[in-house]
Nucleic acid binder design. Structure first.
Lengths: 153, 153
DNA sequence: TATTGTTATACTCTATAACTATA
DNA sequence: TATAGTTATAGAGTATAACAATA
């Protein structure tokens, strides 16, 4: 019944709107020294301590230079530690600092709460549908990132 | 049952991933001379011919300078016509050119099709849920943009 | 004086190309 | 030579502050 095209149309129309709201939300908190991509790096490193730069780039779907710069900013701010891997000196070993973890948790929670305020107006079934839809979309597009790197046409 | 926080968590985790995929999708087509924000401007002007810059800024949730620059790029590329409003010369009157409409339709359709390919893997019920969720989110966040402008804390 | 828009400036995100260091 | 990462450079998107033009 529902065509993929209609689905795509809705996604294309709505996702940029929600994304903009999220970015604004993050920016508006003045203590929030973390943009969305920076927060995502910290969240990833918190769950994958010791990851390499390539790991981060792959997870975020970024090129290596883009990831390098992003991580560099976090290192400059003492939110992430970057060390040379002892085994293979070409690799870099990344981990959040204590402060990095703290900031991550704080910013993360603040963003979640502010967003939750808005979502609080939804009915139970609407919230359920949103959660299911997010899981579905994540399952499609998380894979896509990995695939995309080697698929430059 | 479903907490707004869990819902917010899912949205925060998933929307940036989908957004990145959309941006990449738009960029990868080399004829596609349109970024997501530019396409959004054209779509809006196509449906609201003669809109002012403020109208565009409000619709996109941008500041006036940001919108001015964005529209300026489209004017430079002959995709949009910008004229001084005859009634009140402070206002600007915006409209897509013929070429603007053509490019908009082409890019829009291409993005939709590429996205639809991925979404085509979903079951009927999954597609239905995604569409419903998008409508729900749009209803919350479209309002937010307007409200947000005056709500700088 | 209030409103609409533009310009100047700055920062972030992202890409490609060229490079360095290590294996 | 191949791999991991960085640096150089460039362009888009966005914001704030200062300005110009019109009402």
């Amino acid at each position: 019944m529902e065509s993929p095209e209609e689905c795509a149309r809705q996604v294309l129309e709505t996702v940029p709107i929600v994304m903009r709201a999220i970015r604004r939300e993050m920016r508006s908190h003045r203590e929030s020294e973390l943009s969305v991509p920076r927060l995502r790096v910290l969240i990833y490193l918190n769950r994958n301590e010791g990851a390499s730069l390539s790991d981060v780039a792959e997870y975020l779907g970024l090129t290596l230079p883009a990831a390098s710069k992003l991580v560099g900013c976090l290192v400059d701010r003492s939110l992430v530690i970057r060390e040379i891997h002892s085994g293979d000196r070409r690799f870099v070993t990344l981990a959040p600092t204590e402060r990095g973890r703290t900031v991550m948790r704080k910013v993360s929670a603040a963003a979640r709460e502010r967003l939750a305020e808005r979502l609080g107006f939804l009915s139970e079934s609407e919230k359920t549908i949103v959660i299911q839809a997010m899981r579905t979309l994540a399952s499609i597009f998380s894979v896509e990132q990995k695939a995309k790197i080697g698929t430059e046409e």
